[in-house]
Amino acid sequence: MTKRSLEQRLQEGTVIAGEGFLFELERRGYLQAGSFVPEVALENPDALKETYRDFMKAGSDVVLAFTYNAHREKMRIIGKEELLEPLNRSAIRLAKEVAKEHPTEEALVAGNISNTNIFDPEDPESKEKVRAMFAEMIGWCKEEGVDYIHAETFYYHEEAVIALEEIQKQGLPAVILLGLMGENILRDGYTVEDSCQVLSEKGALVVGMNCFRGPDTMQPYLEKIRKQVTGYTGGLPVPYRTTEEHPTFFNLPDGGCSCHLPTETTFPTALEPLSHNRYELAEWAKEAKDIGINYIGLCCGASPAMIRAVAEACGLETINSRYSPDMEKHFLFGKDKTLKQHNLNYRSKA
């Protein structure tokens, strides 16, 4: 089967975008929380390939090259700027290898750029630095042959516009996603729906939101974006139980924690008790699809099982759907007629 482009897939239905590699690889022991630099692409390429593979088999239509935070500023902070280009190229090449393994249709491969944390709307020099950082990363993506650029987690509208402009210079399709912090407005004064409208009108193929917010505190803004934007829209929340009082995962409290946390908050390494289960995430995915969100996934904290639940909720059968839960033969909760009745009688007391 000929590999369809992102736009072709969007025209035909929902596209599932599985990410969340930052937390997943930290959990697996291959990435340092705090600096969150994806050195795994060079140090443990097999671990990265396996993570890519697990998310693809769980239903992701795209293998997202893991270059989040692999920009010049982050590499400067950890003192490894000389690894910048090798890391980016390795992450993309590994993604391309895995994408070809898809048994029915080769997965898309997306290059990845993200917020730089140095953008300052009052500092023209910072804007040029950001532009240069994006330009070199997107240039490597173009040379390595990615299908599109997934640009994400921008909390400044203008930084997102710069990202779009640099993507367009390379002639690549652009997905532009915004990260909305607790102020409920982007830091340079734009609402997310206004920003998305501008970005869509400027030529982004998909606009929307990712990260920071869980489904409950992202969905109201996705609804606003969907009403205001005529093009394709995306939503990739974190899988955590954010609330109106605590709209992002940066300051989520855990009232049940009895130990001393080494950080002031549960973010980033004590969020496990605050996670949504896969069924709640599936319900959100249905809601997102029903209002017309086209590009659906999960961000930091996602697991392959969560991505599979999201994909299946959108009506898709994944490579690994054959491993989806089926309690029919469970010794306590099953309904198979060959199960022992004395075990089934005991299940309410177990």
Rank of each mutant, 00 (worst) to 15 (best):
L42H: 00
G214I: 07
F55G: 05
Y346C: 12
T248A: 14
C141A: 11
Q228D: 09
L83S: 04
A110E: 01
M1W: 04
F331W: 07
G145S: 11
A204I: 15
L6R: 08
F331C: 11
A110M: 08
K329P: 11
Y279H: 03
I16V: 14
M209I: 02
C259P: 04
C196F: 13
S90M: 04
G255N: 09
E317K: 11
N117A: 15
K224E: 11
N345W: 02
N69I: 10
E193H: 12
E245R: 05
T153S: 12
L48Y: 01
Q341M: 14
T14K: 00
M218D: 07
Q219F: 14
E136T: 11
G34L: 13
E39W: 01
P173F: 03
I167R: 01
F331M: 10
I296N: 03
I319D: 02
E24W: 05
L261F: 05
P45L: 08
P273L: 11
L199T: 05
C299N: 10
K100Y: 01
R93H: 08
E312Y: 05
W140G: 05
T242A: 09
N345Y: 06
V310N: 06
I176G: 04
K100I: 10
T263Q: 06
C196G: 05
G301F: 11
I92H: 02
K329I: 00
D54C: 06
L281P: 01
G179P: 00
L172I: 12
L178A: 08
T153D: 00
G145K: 11
Y346Q: 07
N115Q: 09
I319L: 14
T2P: 15
R28P: 00
A270M: 10
P86H: 09
K227R: 14
H150E: 03
N343C: 14
N88Y: 01
G315E: 09
E312R: 01
N184K: 13
V238F: 07
A270Q: 07
F154C: 00
K329T: 09
G179E: 04
E287V: 08
Q228L: 15
V63I: 07
E317H: 10
E136C: 13
Q8I: 15
V238D: 01
H260M: 09
E287K: 09
E143P: 10
M327I: 09
G297P: 04
G18Y: 02
D290Y: 01
Y68W: 05
G18V: 00
N277A: 00
F154Q: 00
C314N: 04
P124L: 03
C299R: 02
H342I: 15
F134K: 06
D147V: 12
D216A: 12
V146R: 02
F250S: 03
Y295G: 07
E26D: 11
G182T: 11
E12Q: 15
L94V: 03
I162H: 08
K57L: 08
K202D: 08
R226Q: 09
V161N: 04
G79C: 08
I92P: 07
A302E: 03
C211H: 07
R347E: 05
E264M: 13
A70F: 06
H157F: 15
G179R: 12
E223M: 12
P121N: 08
V310I: 10
A204D: 03
F249V: 14
L177V: 06
K142D: 06
E183T: 13
L205I: 13
A309W: 02
